[in-house]
Every structure is written in C-alpha cells, then in structure tokens.
Design a protein around this nucleic acid. Structure first.
Length: 298
DNA sequence: CCTTAATCCTGGAAGC
DNA sequence: TGCTTCCAGGATTAAG
C-alpha cells in the first residue's frame, strides 16, 4: 500500500532515469485509468468518466515529444513533469492506489511482471516507463500545464515529509471532534499518511486512535508531529514497506515493514510493554494500538 | 459538522 | 485437493 515513503522511494529511483530524457512514444492502454483534459473535474475521482464515450487521447497530453525534468511529489501523488515549452508545461500525476507500480525497463529489457500494464512511455534512450496496477485503484491525471498541478495540490494539506514540524503541529490544531486516526488519513489535513504510518505514528506518540482531535493538547500535537516525521523519514531511509506488491522503479523491495510495531500485529504483545495489542475498525480502516501505551482519553 | 456504507478491483489466504 | 468466501485498502460519493 504505497503511502508517502513508498511514493518518495519511487520518485528517487525514477529521477535519474527520466531527467533529460525525451518521450518518443506514449501509449495509454486503458482509457479508464486516466482522467484527461476536459474531463469533468471532481477531486480525485475517476468513477464519473468511466462509462462515458471514450475521448481521444492526445499524444501531447501523454507527454509524447516532451523532455522530462525532475519528478515531483506531494503526499502520495507523484508528478511526471516536462520541461517548459511555448505551449506550457504539461505534467502527469500518477497515483499508485493500492497496487500500482511505476517501473522503468532498460533498453532491450523486459518487465518481469508485464500483466496489468495500463500505460507506457518510451524514452529516447530506448528504455521504457511503465504504469501497471492489477487492482486499478490507482490512476493517472493528464494535466495541460503545471498550473493545473499546483491547483490540484493546493487542496492537499502540508506534506508529511517536506513541511516543518510546526506546520504539522498547526495542521493538527483544529477544533474538531473527529477521531485523530480519521484526521490523519485525511489528505487535506496532512498529505501522505495512510493506514500503516497513521497507526505507527500514533503508537510512537502514545496517542489513542479514537482521541478526538480537539482533545489533543500542545504536548500531544508536538509528540504526534515528531513521531509522524520520524516514522516517515525512517521508512524512506528503509526504501518503504513491501507487504506484497510494492516495489520501486527498479523493482527493488522496501525494508521498512520490519520496523512496524503495531500495523498487522493485532492481538500480539506490544513490543514495549507486552500488553496484547487491540484491533478494531476505526474510520473504515483496520486499526491496531496498545491499550496500555496509548490510553483512552476522555 | 460528522460518520457510515457502498463503490471501484484483483489475488492471496483462510475456511470448509 | 478444490471450491468458496473473506479481506486488504485510497479516495469519493451518497445517505443518514
């Protein structure tokens, strides 16, 4: 489940392959994984356009003929960005969803997992960039100009890795009764956190996942912000968590799953105190916490 | 303002 | 062994 650390690892592994290269041929194999210019806007949903009459995919919108610069990331979203031209600076957002992968294949090489390939970009050195996604929860967004990228990313909260601790603290300072776990999963609050790193950071901060946001005090918010940053940074250093499908652009697996202390460990003993970890669905997600280290707050 | 359920989808694992 | 069922989950929309 690619969250911020996994997407950042993909971005870093992709950057040296893409920067300075020109896209010689771009192919969209499935119309319904892409939102194209002119499609009805609607946040990040693809549902609405799936059953519409197919719209013609313009090669230029797929960055064909464009020279690529450093890929960008905000939260879990990765942007393939082209160099500025007279007609603007088109970009493509890739969201990996659950099982999405961006893989780079050297010239003459072949992809070890070639099924469920939905888009392909051939580069001027003969290599290929491939988007595959068996479960198709992910998708791509074709943006005519960098301004469209910025507009879209303006709806996201501060990035969990790139913003300051103070910005994260402020993002958590809301008079809201919703559970802190639900808030952490909301990309408009802080961008990049998913189920794994939400649980891990709450554990490290000693905060119960059901604690209403407005009940957190300054000390709680600071601990949570620091835990969040620490967990995300450590996971990036370990090249992300590979549970099943995740791999970076070169097919390398991550090692951060070895650092998980609560995620996936329901009813096992807490690594700190030995208490059996609780497991319950909170905010539509399986949530695991230590009832002793993360006491309920009234 | 908030939560919940349903939706998209595939494949691995667990259950019988 | 072979079938069926369940479950994983990011983000959105509709409903309560």
């Amino acid at each position: 489940m690619p969250e911020l650390p996994e997407v950042e690892t993909v971005r870093r592994s992709l950057a040296p392959r893409l920067v300075g290269r020109t896209v010689t041929k771009a192919t969209l194999h499935r119309r319904d994984i892409a939102v194209m210019p002119g499609d009805p806007e609607g946040g990040f949903s693809r549902q609405r356009e799936i059953h519409q009459a197919p719209k013609r995919v313009r090669a230029a919108d797929m960055l064909q003929g464009r020279r690529l610069v450093e890929p960008l990331r905000r939260g879990k979203q990765l942007a393939i960005v082209s160099a500025a031209g007279d007609d603007g600076r088109p970009a493509i957002i890739v969201h990996l969803g659950m099982t999405g992968q961006l893989r780079w294949v050297a010239a003459g090489g072949k992809l070890d997992a070639a099924d469920h390939v939905h888009a392909t970009w051939r580069l001027d050195d003969g290599s290929r960039l491939v988007f595959r996604d068996p479960r198709r929860f992910g998708g791509i967004w074709l943006l005519p100009d960098q301004r469209d990228l910025e507009a879209r990313w303006a709806t996201l909260g501060p990035d969990g890795l790139e913003s300051s601790i103070n910005e994260l603290v402020q993002a958590l300072d809301r008079s809201s009764r919703r559970a802190v776990k639900a808030a952490l999963l909301d990309q408009g609050v802080i961008a990049g956190i998913g189920n794994i790193y939400a649980d891990e950071s709450l554990f490290r901060a000693g905060v119960h996942p059901l604690t209403p946001l407005e009940q957190l005090d300054d000390s709680d918010r600071l601990r949570l912000a620091r835990s969040l940053r620490g967990v995300l940074q450590a996971a990036v250093d370990a090249r992300g968590s590979t549970l099943r499908d995740y791999a970076d652009a070169d097919g390398r697996l991550g090692a951060a799953q070895g650092m998980h202390r609560v995620y996936g460990r329901g009813s096992q003993p807490c690594t700190t105190c030995g208490t059996l970890l609780e497991r319950e669905v909170i905010a539509q997600r399986t949530t695991v916490w230590c009832p002793s280290c993360q006491p309920t707050r009234l």
